[in-house]
């Protein structure tokens, strides 16, 4: 471990900025390229990087596998939740125009609906990518 000071320090310095960049990609997705899919992958890349440099055990202390699995399911639930919410507000499934009161500007509802589903996509993609990496990296090689 001791001969990789640059890698370890570099990882620790870079990680918060990569996380910040992922959030930028997520919330700037309305104005430029980006969105939930890309931001989720970048978010997951931080934990992949951490696991590659510090080892899988320490990465699993930071980000337990169970949390990743839960994220994968939670994002889909969030997406469906936004869809059902707009349905219960009187519109069709996933018609965000009805998210707020009828006299409200419908584009307002669209805006928040898009933020909601993008967040769901982010959470799912993040959880799935981390879980996939853990599943592959956590398996021991069996030589025959």
């Amino acid at each position: 471990m001791d001969d990789r000071v640059i890698l370890r320090v570099g990882t620790k310095v870079l990680s918060p900025f990569i996380l910040l960049f992922a959030l930028y990609v997520q919330f700037h997705g309305d104005y430029g390229p980006g969105g939930g899919f890309q931001a989720g992958v970048i978010f997951a890349a931080v934990f992949v990087l951490y696991a590659l440099v510090f080892g899988l055990e320490r990465a699993m202390e930071v980000m337990p596998a169970k949390v990743a699995y839960a994220c994968g399911a939670l994002g889909v639930a969030l997406y469906l939740g936004v869809g059902y919410l707009s349905m219960f507000r009187g519109g069709e499934f996933l018609n965000y125009s009805y998210l707020f009161d009828p006299e409200h500007d419908p584009t307002h509802g669209q805006h928040y609906g898009i933020i909601g589903v993008e967040l769901g996509v982010l959470v799912t993609v993040f959880g799935v990518m981390v879980a996939l990496f853990y599943a592959f990296a956590g398996r021991r090689r069996i030589d025959t």
Binding site: G35, V76, D105, Q110, H111, I114, G120
Partner: peptide, 29 residues
């Protein structure tokens, strides 16, 4: 229709074709 979202890809992805994206999210799950 959607409001001030200059990136058309985002508005099509999340709103016009929300069903699609919901399906894709379910597929990766």
């Amino acid at each position: 229709e959607i409001g001030h979202i200059p990136n058309v890809v985002t508005s099509v992805l999340a709103s016009y074709r929300g069903y699609d994206t919901m399906g894709e999210t379910a597929v990766i799950f």
